[in-house]
């Protein structure tokens, strides 16, 4: 018996299966998000895995911006609750969670039971979001996956003063024309995101441990930039990328145990 959580974000789709003990048994990530075939592909892979293992998916919970259009299972929960659930499961000492999503940045504060005390999200502006980093990756023509490694090579941090994605794009272009190296530019992009994100996190109050959730946690350049801005360590789990779908799977399990839900 397994429980399926799917996080259909604006830029990627993540899936996680947990068993009746709540152990993670399978995770998968598709680099396309809501409105694409991402959710279908993740679902297909998850169902294939379950079939291979001879286990049945008892309940499915969707989260992320695409959750309302996901019909399988019919259950959905906000990614605020799901990231909180998933990260608390992975790192029980976490009290402040940062999630840099494709179009939303979240700062979530938890109590020692993992319950959400309060949360804040960015305003209607792409600055500090995953989309900002993606846009910059296109401008400098470097795959996003290489950002973390290249940032380590930076000898200085280029100053990106614009917080607006559109203005920052032209600022980066002009800096490239002055010969600033790609690693320095990437470090500057990370610093720009970190300033914006930490400003938001401070609004919600910071209590250690602080952890990073979501796909951006794979980028060590961002992690370092955030730590510098926070003046505190930032914890990352190997499963941080799928924390939203993990939380959704755990909610599905809880709901099933309460006997309230439907079976897939």
């Amino acid at each position: 018996m397994v429980f399926f959580g799917i996080d259909i974000g604006s830029t990627a789709t993540k899936g996680t299966l947990v068993n009746h003990n709540g152990d993670i048994v399978y995770t998968t990530v598709e680099a396309i998000g809501t409105g694409t075939k991402g959710s279908a592909r993740v679902t297909e892979r998850v169902q294939e895995f379950a079939a291979q293992q001879g286990v049945s998916i008892q309940m499915t919970m969707a989260t992320g911006y695409g959750r309302f259009s996901y019909v399988e299972g019919g259950l959905q929960k906000s990614e605020i609750s799901c990231h909180a659930k998933g990260m608390f499961y992975l790192l029980p000492n976490v009290r402040t969670i940062i999630d840099i999503g494709g179009q939303d940045v979240k700062a979530i504060r938890l109590n020692n039971k993992g319950q959400i005390v309060n949360f804040v999200m960015n305003d209607k502006c792409a600055a500090g979001t995953g989309r900002f980093i993606e846009t910059m990756a296109k401008v400098i023509d470097v795959p996003l996956a290489q950002f973390g490694d290249l940032a380590v090579q930076a000898v200085s941090v280029a100053s990106i003063s614009s917080t607006c994605t559109v203005f920052a794009e032209s600022e980066v272009v002009s800096k490239m024309s002055t010969g600033i190296s790609i690693p320095n530019l990437i470090a500057g992009i990370h610093a720009s995101v970190a300033r914006r994100v930490v400003g938001l996190v401070r609004r919600n109050g910071i209590e250690p441990d602080i952890a990073l959730s979501g796909g951006v946690s794979l980028n060590m350049g961002i992690v370092t930039a955030l730590e510098e801005e926070l003046h505190a360590p930032l914890f990352v789990s190997p499963f941080s990328q799928v924390a939203g779908s993990l939380g959704a799977a755990l909610y599905a399990k809880e709901l099933f145990e309460k006997g309230n839900g439907k079976t897939l």
Binding site: S78, S81, D104, M121
Partner: peptide, 8 residues
């Protein structure tokens, strides 16, 4: 999204 988070 924010409202649903608040409700939860």
């Amino acid at each position: 999204n924010r409202l649903q988070g608040l409700v939860e």
